[in-house]
Write a protein that binds this DNA or RNA. Sequence first.
DNA 1: CGCAGCGTGATAGTCCATTCTCATCTAGCC
DNA 2: GGCTAGATGAGAATGGACTATCACGCTGCG
Lengths: 141, 141
Amino acid sequence: MSVRRTDQRAAIRRAVSAAQRPLSVQEIFEAAQAEVPGLGLATVYRNLKRLTEEGFLRTVQVPGEAGRYELAGLCHHHHFLCDVCGRMFDIPSCMGGLERMVPAGFLLRRHEVLLYGRCDGCAAQPEGACVGASGLLGSES
Amino acid sequence: MSVRRTDQRAAIRRAVSAAQRPLSVQEIFEAAQAEVPGLGLATVYRNLKRLTEEGFLRTVQVPGEAGRYELAGLCHHHHFLCDVCGRMFDIPSCMGGLERMVPAGFLLRRHEVLLYGRCDGCAAQPEGACVGASGLLGSES
DNA sequence: CGCAGCGTGATAGTCCATTCTCATCTAGCC
DNA sequence: GGCTAGATGAGAATGGACTATCACGCTGCG
């Protein structure tokens, strides 16, 4: 038979699909666990790996921390990482002209742009009063 | 007394200074070991940490891998990571207009641009014939 | 030169993210 | 309902990067 439908996998797919931004494994774990109590972390890793291999998900590597996951097949975009809450957001636009930055003889294949700062929620907060990192799904903007 | 001058530390400083690009710990280790045989990896870590705290070095975080080190105090620039040899190079220019990419309400503080592709040396090679990753210092361009 | 103490080398240990193991469970086909 | 292979959950195990430990060596001051 192979590839069975399970509540766990469905919850994981739903978690990533619902968020409009890349989620960390912890975020996915917590979101899916809210739907399927008792869900194990190993199952999350297993399914993330598999959904990625199947082309449903894509990993977003972050400098200095563990990768995050987003839906594969989204059109070209970049990300914004909030210094305060640690959540990552999608940035639809992209400036061109990167080829001009490349030295002669170098072959440019792809690029990553990561913006850092405060998300709208955290920028509005009175400094230390923001929601903690990775403890929730994107419930804003 | 404090802060003694040792051959080990001098070799480490020299390795990073000489390279015109960010070096991984391994690259620094190998380069410094060439000058000071018997050099230990712990010493490299110790000194990198310290040189960073002293403001001599800066770490360059790389998505999905360990950080690299470059001289602090260089003016704003970005990097190019070769898919083949794994070496990282400096890209002096930077396009502006990033503020325009940020959604309303978001506060932009800094940004990272990472270009991927082949460096001039590897782009010229007949595909698989390039020098291996991280096993050498920047001996080119 | 002599001494004090920082620096070093080798290795064990720590910290995390991720994977493996295995007994148990269950989706899907009969 | 019954069966079987794929899935799961819990915890152990792994791997990689980095740090701590500690005995010994070397710098730098007197």
